[in-house]
Amino acid sequence: MAATVTPQPKTNRIGLTVLDYRGGKTTLCAGCGHNAISERIIDAFYEMGIPPERVIKLSGIGCSSKSPAYFMGRSHSFNAVHGRMPSVATGAVLANSKIVALGISGDGDTASIGIGQFVHLMRRNLPIVYIIEDNGVYGLTKGQFSATADLGSKLKTGVINDLPAIDTCALAIMLGATFVGRSFSGDKKQLHTMLKAALSHRGTVMLDVISPCTTFNDHEGSTKSYKFVKDHEEPLHDLDFVPHFHDIAVEYDEGTSLNVTMHDGSSLRLRKLEHDYDPTNKVAAVKRLIESHEAQEVLTGVLYVNTTAPNFIDMINMTEQPLATLPESATRPSREALEECMEELR
């Protein structure tokens, strides 16, 4: 009998193909940075072998916040209200702490209307990967400046931004996020690696990903255009990531590299381009970020990482089984308990 050889599609460690991580067709503009980020997210989840059913995608409102519809269609998703995704994510993670939460926001969604919930999310160190798809404008409402627009950046209409940018990374570091990075939608390798490391972290991961808006903010004079970011990107290190399920001993040179062991046992190796940068030093990280603004650099890389701080779920001493699925026997105290409560009130 002649054997027909059908080429087996490539699968990840749980037997899924990359197609199983795809979503609906994007409706964002061609060339929008957000689409590239969606692609990197698909690759990262696929390569990490995370079952899409274990993932929840949460977002606010904006072009960026629409993007969860365009990846990982097998994951539950919640398109919340503008700037309030962190609270919805918090509730969901409390209800089911076994789930992997991915939050997608925009710079408007985070740094203006949502700044309140954003800072409190960072402060709680809730286990979540929170991504800002940062284009310096409100894409969905047609291109007004957002609060991450750099001082002096110019809109197509010629309007110049005269207020300083909010640095969401500096803010996140100061407030308690335990994995903070900045990347660029056009830097495929760096973003891809950073996302995989993010998925190995238990705590708040905050990634500010510069993601140019081709329609409203990709012109000469904008500091969030593809060209500007390419010209001004200043990576702190080259990233390598070895997932915990790859049994490879990571060799590295102390002098030029730093190895971070993630919560799940994976290794993140940072090959230093800036030799004295220490991503475990909060104060230095914030200082370096402030300097980068003065120098008009787009500083990228893992800015801060702390794998020892307790996360919000650890702190509240919740039972192992997700609260959402606790049986009635666990959530309704006994008759005697009610009688005891009543007796105290007699």
Partner: peptide, 14 residues
């Protein structure tokens, strides 16, 4: 945030 958390938790089944 209080009500956002309530909805997030309700959505997730709590």
């Amino acid at each position: 945030a209080a009500v956002g958390m309530v909805l997030g938790a309700g959505w997730a089944g709590a």
